[in-house]
Write a protein that binds this DNA or RNA. Structure first.
Lengths: 329, 329
DNA sequence: ATGAAAGCGCTAACAC
DNA sequence: GTGTTAGCGCTTTCAT
């Protein structure tokens, strides 16, 4: 491997001048610049990234925490992040947490060891108190999921509004027994729950404890919940699923069991993934602009790095959610 | 930021000893080891990755080239790669090529500048001649897509067999006018094409040029192809789509146009993505074990790095494909 | 078992 | 406009 010293020697110049050429600094004469470029090509020289990173105290690497790569909503966010990263010379390191608290914390090690310049969370498993200490080592941005007591920039969607809208829609359709699927204990989950109950209470309805399902993320979960639902003596006529994957599997399972969707059971998704408009009946759902929040999160990350934005202060950029009515409700 | 020198000074030991403790070397007395550990905790010390990378000439980073993050089949491969990477202390850098030749080549820069230890391709845009020179800088593994003249390890699926199986199935269902969707010019595409025509010729059938569609990757493409198909005077009764996304969109569009699938048009997918068993009618398709080839590719990558396997010789690990018959054919 | 010191490849402050 | 040189933080001979 040719080094900067080799190029310097080859050209009879100093390594400083070579470095200046590499980094496009001014104050280098045209001819020497060309001389260096030719030598680099001749010697097959490429700057060593590790050496530069060490010297510059910067890696241009961002760790992105994501629960599962196979969840289309999260890859959509990732895609949004990537777009902005790409345009600004950053590379992304994939960190699949598999919804594990421990893995999530382990990945923060990348920040402490300066392997990355910062971290973007798209989901959160640990309480904020666990994560907060790591903010000392670099910017941490929360994108999509959040904690209300977090002390860093957040880009998120108005979950209260989104779930309120969806639930209100079910109520207007005449449903009085509505089931609810909930996820974790993050701010996102509690807000969604609040929106749901806001609509429920506003309508003077009641939700039985057995109509509330937990840990619902995958298609498997959707199937499972439907089966449990079937067993209920006083069966809900509508369900708020919290995700298109769960909803799709549930629609499938309902039809397999001879139920008519939405007549016998109205099913509301969340996300508006491509699948929502592909299945039959098409899924009514809440549209979440995943790529948009991803892109905005990366924007803010960059601002934090170059000091345009404070990185240890809670700021919230909130985007609206919207209801998409199709056929499953 | 505390450095190794700080820890050395704090403990009254040399930086060499501290380094030995960090790297779990033998020949360090129990008490000094503890002394160092305590000091590291006390000072909030973390080893600097850039410095280590520079010194060790290794990054434990792998660049994974993928056309689009939002394509579920490719994220499945990514998931397989990640599983093995994780278990072996490697991190992945996402490289979305967006099917651009230029971007693909640009990402190989990561290899030249030693930002990553090697590269795994899951798709290929450029001819092998363009890529070959980069093999000098580190291991390159082809996973999924391939070139027949490539000179590196490949993990791939038996595309000839897969498309043969699928086409044969359509023929056995009585179809004589079968349309075909093709992708790029890679070995994968040519092999798939060969399998298709093997079955076609074996049955003594003919395929009109206008039944062959190009650049079919997305749901948009599926819709587009269906519309073109409709215009055909002598319309095919079955279509080999080459992808579940294309197939799903086509099924949707066909039904929207009042066609019965499979009676009026049989549609065969490829991949067996989750969506295949969610839509109606359920998609007949070719199952591709994406996570499996991803994992095997990463295995081989690791073997190449530690010299267990030659990295500049064409070797092929080929896994079989299988037909999944559901309702769309 | 421990330490001294060289050096991985690069950048930037300083000198001229 | 160009060169000298001192590190960035770590690992690894080579001593002892």
């Amino acid at each position: 491997m040719a080094t900067i010293a080799d190029v310097a020697q080859y050209t009879g110049l100093s390594s400083a001048t070579v470095s200046r050429v590499i980094n496009n600094y001014p104050h280098v004469s045209k001819d020497k610049r060309k001389l260096v470029h030719d030598a680099m090509k001749e010697l097959g020289y490429f700057p060593n990234t590790s050496a530069r990173n060490l010297r510059n105290r910067k890696t241009n690497l961002v760790a992105v925490l994501i629960p599962r790569l196979t969840n289309p909503f999260f890859t959509l966010i990732l895609d949004g992040i990537e777009k902005v990263a790409e345009a600004n010379g950053f590379q992304l390191i994939i960190c699949q947490t598999k919804s594990s608290k421990k893995k999530e914390l382990d990945f923060l090690n990348l920040l402490q060891t300066k392997q990355v310049d910062g971290v973007i969370f798209t989901s959160i498993e640990n309480e904020w108190e666990e994560i907060e200490p790591f903010t000392a080592h670099g910017p941490i941005i929360l994108c999509n999921e959040y904690h209300h007591n977090a002390t860093v920039p957040m880009v998120r969607l108005d979950q209260v509004q989104g779930s309120y809208l969806g639930t209100q829609h079910l109520i207007r359709k005449g449903h009085t027994r509505i089931a609810y699927c909930m996820g974790s204990t993050s701010g996102l989950s509690t807000d969604r729950r609040r929106g749901f109950f806001n609509a429920i209470e506003e309508a003077g309805l009641e939700v039985k404890p057995e109509w509330i399902f937990r840990d619902t993320y995958t298609m498997e979960d959707g199937k499972r919940v439907f089966i449990e639902l079937l067993k209920l003596s006083e069966r809900p006529t509508a369900i708020f699923t919290g995700g298109d994957e769960v909803a799709s599997a549930m629609v499938k399972e309902a039809r397999r069991n001879g139920l008519d969707v939405p007549k016998d059971l109205a099913i509301l998704g969340f996300d508006d993934q491509p699948i929502a408009s592909l299945i039959e009946p098409e899924l009514s759902t809440i549209y979440q602009p995943g790529d948009e929040i991803g892109a905005r999160a990366m924007d803010i990350f960059i601002d934090c790095l170059n000091g345009t934005q404070e990185r240890n202060r809670a700021t919230v950029k909130m985007l609206p959610l919207s209801l998409v009515v199709r056929q499953s409700t």
